[in-house]
Design a protein around this nucleic acid. Structure first.
Lengths: 378, 378
DNA sequence: CGCTTCATCTTCGATTTCGAAGGAAGTGGA
DNA sequence: TCCACTTCCTTCGAAATCGAAGATGAAGCG
């Protein structure tokens, strides 16, 4: 049941507005699309008779007649999305409004190479589809996040670290052999940013920091993901000020990652005689008020904050959302805030919000859905 | 002769495409606007009969019939644009394709306050119009650059340094009292970036560095000026790594401006017993191979490059254009390049060009024209 | 309760845009 | 030179879109 959406032009725009939750009624659509109300009515009627859109009760009055609420029909289709990590993949199915139908996590060694990994992924998708989706509901798109840089022009992985065999691999092309559908391949931090963006209505410029084993960052400019040449947002190898000198795996001294990533904190804790298995365990240590852990997290936050200082002055975002497994540690955000507010221009921090991410663990999957809906589905 | 352009919707789009030089023929317009060729012909015919557009000879064949070249009629109108500096204003008139008709520089103390300065500006505009523009050619828009932050939402100056009396002043509103026309007010580095952008066709993401008395920076994302909350691109108060510690006028230690601005270099030269009047004089010293000057400029370039490192990783621009009076010093760009290429991710520098600005001394004026044409003129 | 006001949505004729077809004007190869 | 082919531009009927007017349903108010 693979099938491209049979919509084009104006119809597609309207469908997208409903799918992304920006519009709920014909009147909303008229306001947002710029089309005349009459044209909207016509197109909506067509979309309903195509079975893509449905009417469902009525919305809240804004002082006059209540709008008839429009929703994507559940049978309009589903999206299959995944977020590949080093040792496991998070994957699931979304409906066409981008809401998750089912999400699960499977072990998956990315080091086994692209073919094996992607085939495992496709098989998992097929399983989920067979179990959770009726036969007459078509798959409309496939998207996946990759823990490394993706060239936006070619959808190929470029110079990834810790992903042997993936360099230059045409991921989208390979998935396209199995699915004749819109395919999205994107860096995982970028997907997370796209997912987070939907939770900050009215904020067009945001940075999403992913503090986990590594440090990732995605950038939304003007409501759209900024890709640059494929590495945009990569701040992990920025040089930080420091008294000592630590050599990073990349060959340069004093990279942010070597001081403030979950991996760096874990190894520093080990030096202090405290062994933890995952970055998330550091959060528990902080919650238990273990001084070594708290001090380390605070130092990491300060270092991250110092780097963000430059970026806040330069980019002036509305929001910096901090996610990833380390973000649950209270002192992290606090010390990031302190560093940024102390050193940045008042004009840049005037209305700047530095807050925990809102999209939760499935942010990357939701982001993949959002990008598929916005960009890929015509 | 003030008059808003009598165009709307599709007509305006087409006019803009011709004005900005992106389209030269009906066929170009059809390709770029997305309209059908037949619709383009209709609208163009209207624009010609309105006297806004004219046909002028024919262009180069692309293998078939030669296109009839379209140009904005010289009588379609003019724009009045200015770039305010601390002690003088550069101002001029542009035709509707953004090309300068006349440019001049006048002494103008910005410290005399907004009313006096803006009235002087308007008087200068009126003079130029009277001398250089026939009575039947209307003024279509007015734009000016300000050497300080401008809130994009309100077009007010916010927390400027060295501009007493300007804080919170509604510049656009004030000019609007005298001209019932589209008014543009923008930070000077931003205008320079907008002007530079036109000289880098195909490059959608660029940073323009202005190295003069101060250090300014404008950012073009996706072909459009990025404003953020009004301070975007302001990197002059970013903290740099250094052994010593210098206190900047802003109250923080070790700002980039305190080490690498023309003002900082001049004061360092003075300490070495070499007195110069303007940053441009430093360039002559470098050309004469005065070791102190060369070494200072090289150090400034390295420091600027180190800051750019962070921004290149984060933003992944296609081009960094270096302008301003110091940019003529060869070692500046060389050492910026060295710092950036040494430390940035290969993916980010793969196709990155770091080059002297191309738009010349009138960059800001051209930028004002470009922004007026793109944004203000409907 | 009836009245006014408001926002939503539809109807219908006027306008704009499209797209297929074709004429005009050029290039390049046999 | 002729002829095939390309690109540019226009013509004209078909289709999409608009906008004014009105119908619909709900909230607010005396």
């Amino acid at each position: 049941m693979n099938q491209r959406l049979p919509v084009s032009g104006a119809q597609g725009d309207l469908l997208r507005l409903v799918a992304t939750g920006r519009a709920e009624s014909r009147a909303d659509l008229a306001r947002l699309s710029g089309l005349a109300a009459s044209s909207v009515s016509l197109r909506v009627e067509e979309l309903i008779s195509l079975g893509l859109l449905g009417e469902e009760g009525s919305g809240a009055s804004r002082g006059g007649r209540r709008p008839r609420r429009l929703r994507l029909s559940p049978s309009a289709g589903v999206l299959a999305v995944a977020d590949l990590g080093a040792h496991h993949a998070r994957l699931g199915l979304l409906d066409l409004s981008g809401a998750p139908l089912v999400v699960e996590e499977r072990p998956c060694e990315i080091a086994r190479g692209p073919e094996a990994t992607l085939d495992l992924l496709s098989d998992a998708f097929d399983e989920l589809l067979a179990v959770h989706v009726p036969d007459d509901v078509p798959l409309r798109g496939v998207g996946t996040g990759i823990p490394g840089p993706v060239d936006p022009a070619t959808s190929r992985v470029v110079t990834p670290s810790r992903m042997p065999g993936w360099n230059g691999f045409p991921v989208a092309e390979h998935l396209g052999l199995r699915y004749d559908l819109p395919i999205l391949v994107e860096n995982d931090a970028n997907l997370m940013a796209a997912g987070e963006a939907r939770h900050w209505p009215g904020c067009d410029n945001l940075m999403v920091l992913k503090a986990g084993t590594g440090i990732g960052c995605g950038v939304i400019v003007n409501g759209h993901l900024h890709r640059g040449r494929g590495a945009a947002g990569d701040i992990s190898h920025v040089r930080v000020r420091s008294d000592s000198s630590v050599l990073c795996a990349c060959g340069h001294p004093d990279c942010l990652e070597a001081y403030a990533s979950g991996a760096a904190l874990m190894s520093a804790l080990a030096d202090a005689g405290i062994t933890v298995a995952r970055p998330a365990d550091i959060v528990s240590l902080v919650d238990d008020a273990i001084p070594e852990a708290t001090s380390l997290v605070r130092g990491a936050g300060r270092r991250i904050g110092e780097v963000l200082t430059v970026l806040v002055n330069f980019f002036n975002p509305d929001v910096i959302a901090v996610g990833g497994s380390l973000s649950a540690a209270e002192p992290l955000i606090t010390s990031i805030r302190a560093a940024v507010y102390e050193r940045c221009l008042p004009l840049a921090t005037r209305d700047l919000e530095i807050a925990p991410a809102r999209a939760g663990r499935d942010a990357a999957l939701l982001g993949a859905g959002a990008l598929l809906l916005e960009a890929a589905l015509v």
